Computed example of a mutant assay.
Amino acid sequence: MSKPLLEVKGLKKYFDVTGGIFSRKVGEVKAVDDVSFSVYEKEVLGIVGESGCGKSTTGKALLRLTEPTEGEVLFDGKDITGMSQEEMRKMRRDMQIIFQDPYASLNPRHKVEKILGEPLIVHGIGSKKERLEKVKQILETVGLPGEHAQRYPHQFSGGQRQRIGIARALIVNPKLIVCDEPVSALDVSIQSQILNLMEDLQEEFGLTYVFIAHDLSVVRHISDRVGVMYLGRMVELADNEELYENPLHPYTRSLMSAVPNPDPDAKKERIILQGDVPSPSNPPSGCAFHTRCPEAMDICRQVRPEFREKTVNHFVACHLYEDSVKN
């Protein structure tokens, strides 16, 4: 394999919890707790997990939209966590994001021409005339008429707004786009259109995506590799087909068992997890999943499992696959 475009090593993001009349720190929420992975050029890495597992915080920490507490984020071989704001601003031309909510991510007071032209002004690209031309061009690339540049966001539907969000990320020709649940706020009929558009754009522009979602069938459709997160930690990472055909971690297996099967005659055993997701401000000791795991052992309660390669390119953090634990 070629050299990774993005390498994440031991990424952590903790949020302080304050209390009392002086708002003193009384604890911390471990939103992302020691996550490591790589993303290769022109690859789509899917990140899945239930709500509150730290997927979106991971995506934002990769771009320093939220500052990481600890760890390294290497983009094109450079560690961006130590960069000044000015260096980071230049770097953001190559690293963009598509936000989850197409309604909240566009300024309602600005016309689309201004919304899409702003990144070009920030990065000093083109004259005023060239920028307007580029705005019209990128709107047509994402399937909207060029003259819609003169409209305001409220004049578009949710699907059209998300196309504008994609256009904004694309207009500066980035290498990497973090897609933070880009279709979860859209109707199912529109989701497939947006996903197909994103696939076409990836091919046309040679893009690399980190695709964050909680819908496993969406991730299967678009990703080359998939990482599964639980309570701020990565528990499994493998090639798309390998993960869906041969999930190793008990949490991944329970997620897979919940994916609807279009065949009405297919028999499928549903794995129902007991209990609720623990609080990230007070995660369990050892393996974070042991409180709900049907296969938990004594070691799971005490020792945190290492995230290691079980078979080629299939990583898992589970004591079930550690030789020392097996009898």
Rank of each mutant, 00 (worst) to 15 (best):
G159I: 14
G159F: 09
R161D: 04
R161F: 03
R161W: 13
Q162I: 05
Q162G: 02
R163N: 15
G165C: 04
I166Q: 09
I166W: 02
I166N: 07
A167M: 02
R168T: 00
R168V: 00
R168W: 01
R168F: 01
A169P: 04
A169F: 09
V172Q: 10
N173R: 14
L176Q: 02
L176R: 04
V178G: 04
V178W: 06
V178Y: 12
C179H: 15
P182I: 10
P182K: 07
P182F: 14
P182Q: 02
V183D: 04
S184T: 08
L186R: 09
V188Y: 11
S189L: 15
S189G: 13
Q191D: 13
I194L: 12
L195D: 01
L195P: 11
L195T: 06
N196A: 06
L197D: 14
D200T: 04
L201M: 13
L201R: 12
E203S: 15
E203F: 14
T208L: 00
T208S: 05
Y209F: 06
Y209L: 07
Y209K: 03
I212N: 00
I212M: 01
A213G: 04
D215R: 01
V219K: 06
R220F: 13
H221Y: 08
I222Q: 00
D224P: 03
V226N: 02
V226L: 06
G227A: 11
Y230S: 07
Y230M: 14
L231K: 13
G232H: 04
R233Y: 08
R233K: 11
R233S: 13
V235Q: 02
V235Y: 01
V235I: 09
E236L: 02
E236F: 02
E236P: 05
A238L: 15
E241C: 10
E241S: 12
E242M: 15
Y244V: 15
Y244G: 12
E245H: 13
N246Y: 13
T252Y: 11
L255M: 08
M256H: 07
S257P: 15
V259A: 01
P260S: 03
N261Q: 15
N261A: 08
N261W: 09
P262Q: 07
D263P: 08
A266S: 08
A266T: 13
K268M: 12
E269M: 07
E269R: 09
R270L: 12
I271A: 07
I272D: 15
L273T: 05
G275F: 06
G275A: 09
G275T: 15
D276M: 08
D276G: 06
D276V: 14
D276N: 11
V277S: 01
V277D: 00
P280A: 13
S281E: 14
P283I: 02
P284N: 05
S285N: 11
S285P: 08
A288Q: 07
F289T: 14
F289C: 10
H290K: 02
T291E: 14
T291V: 06
D298Y: 08
